[in-house]
Design a protein around this nucleic acid. Structure first.
Lengths: 301, 301
DNA sequence: TGGACTCATAAGGCGGCCTTATGCCCTGGG
DNA sequence: CCCAGGGCATAAGGCCGCCTTATGAGTCCA
């Protein structure tokens, strides 16, 4: 037990999970099979394979259809989260793939490309199924260059100021959050942390040059040298969750961890670590066509 | 474009995604292959297959190792979310599988089993790799019965009052959130919604008998007949996101939607829709052994 | 009782992926 | 200067899995 074999052998593949969701929705193995374009015995076999893999019956077969068992409901909900993550992956990948020949090219800074854009692309595909989007991701400077160079039609940046030479609108805010692992003393702290106290505390941060660092440097006139400087968001999260110290990251990157309390947010007293999220484009007329559609979706945020 | 073919053909399988994460972490195809227990050519082939599938180079091969390309970094981050969801699935499934013969049996109400327990189980497995947990999921009544009947060692319930006949501690709170789709008038509303106004508004709700309904009924002495009564959390979310009306769900179930603004939270003025999350056990000594470990993890929340 | 619907089983075939065995390239040390 | 080592790609062969078609069994209803 506690074996750490590859997940692939203990979690059904995406096709099987999709099938399970379809069975839950349609109430019949056969109809689910038809929807996915496979034969009924294939569907039957896939579900059976899943049940063997999990060791628990998932669907209650009857001559009038199939319904989920109690365990099946639970498993289906967990499966849904995997499938949703896969849909976001797909939406992003599709934008990444059509590198140049698509009708709308978007340039986005990393945080937005990573956490927000896949959702918008899913929504866009639902609203305008025939819009192909291609995606360029980099830092803010990169986004500005692509727009000015005519390589991108629409950009998304996070930052304090509006990039000069571009038009744009604010589409939301991104709050930086100070978070600690549940075992850290600050996790149980009730009083908010002041700017001075935060500035004097060594923090776990992304490397110099990242958007996070810029905002932090601007908000805290002086701050202690970082406890750790790590190259990826994930590494920062892990270090903080392990109790190494407080980290500072975008709330977008921390949603999951905060919800499950792998990390705990520390209230701040007199600091406001927010940055604007902006859609930007070349000066002139408002974006039209597909760019306008995507912009509308993003503004709905 | 906009084709809705099965995801299985457009998203790499879990084994390939894990491999990509390993390559990112270890900086070499060969070492990643070794870690996953496959041969180096197999790893090479898997990555190549992924790149063909996505149409974008993901890793930069060199005679001194492999590093991620720019696109590879982005893809890896999306992949990580899939793998994390799969790990949660696995943790839950493992608990579900060992139905009776494991050392610790936990009974949990649905919301907790669905959203919180997988995370705890992952943490528990990290801290105590040899602890096998088995899981029974149902409503609060079911949890109480299992504990009193000796079928479970530890229970988790959400509810207003402490179940009589059991000991327990509060391990956190669950807030019910009123949310609407981005197009709904309430999404742009600035003034908080009062209890009276909420009570007079037809809402999208889970079916009668769910925990959500209980809390809502207790908080709003009278309320308008529901706009829709749906059997699953997901159906409620979809209806609300589509603009049908305001829904009421646990914030745990809404984390993702609120973060990506598929749904927007509506501020409430004078209503407090919270319920306690409690760990419960048979009266007597505090839980010991594996139950104590899990309890400690849950309390860290 | 027969038809329509559900699902299960059986047999056969195809494809994919993995392994082993190489070869090429680069680097660094003797 | 040459050789050893690490890293990746290619080729050939084999195995396993899964899918399809064809059929049977059970239930419900007219």
């Amino acid at each position: 037990m506690g074996e750490r074999g590859p997940l692939g052998h203990r979690v059904p593949d995406l096709a099987a999970l999709e099938l399970l969701l379809a069975v839950a929705r349609l109430g019949s193995l056969g109809r689910a099979a038809a929807e996915l374009g496979i034969s009924q015995p294939a569907a039957s076999g896939r579900v059976r394979t899943m049940e063997r893999m999990l060791g628990v019956p998932l669907v209650e077969r009857s001559p009038r259809g199939s319904t989920l068992t109690h365990a099946g409901v639970l498993v289906t909900d967990w499966a849904r989260r995997i499938v949703e993550a896969a849909e976001a992956f797909d939406a992003g990948a599709q934008a990444l793939r059509s590198h140049r020949d698509s009708r709308l090219t978007v340039a986005a800074s990393m945080t937005i490309a990573e956490y927000l854009l896949p959702g918008w692309l899913i929504a866009l595909r639902a609203a305008r199924p025939d819009t192909a989007v291609s995606l360029l991701a980099g830092n803010s400077q990169f986004v500005v260059e692509r727009l000015l160079g005519g390589d991108a039609d629409l950009g998304f940046v996070e930052g304090l100021a509006m990039p000069s030479g571009l038009s744009g609108v604010e589409i939301g805010g991104d709050r930086l959050v100070v978070a600690v692992g549940p075992a850290h003393p600050w996790a149980r702290r009730r009083a908010a942390v002041s700017a001075d106290e935060l500035a004097a505390t060594p923090l776990i941060l992304r490397e110099e040059g990242s958007g996070t660092r810029q905002v932090l440097d601007a908000a805290l006139s002086w701050h202690a040298p970082p406890l750790l400087e790590l190259a990826s968001t994930t590494a920062v999260k892990s270090a903080a969750a392990g109790g190494a110290g407080p980290c500072v990251l975008s709330e977008l990157a921390l949603t999951e961890e905060l919800a499950t309390r792998r990390l705990v947010e520390v209230p701040l007293a007199d600091v406001s670590l927010t940055r604007r999220l902006r859609a930007v484009w070349r000066p002139g007329p408002q974006p039209s066509g597909p760019a306008r559609d995507l912009l509308a979706l993003a503004r709905a945020c």
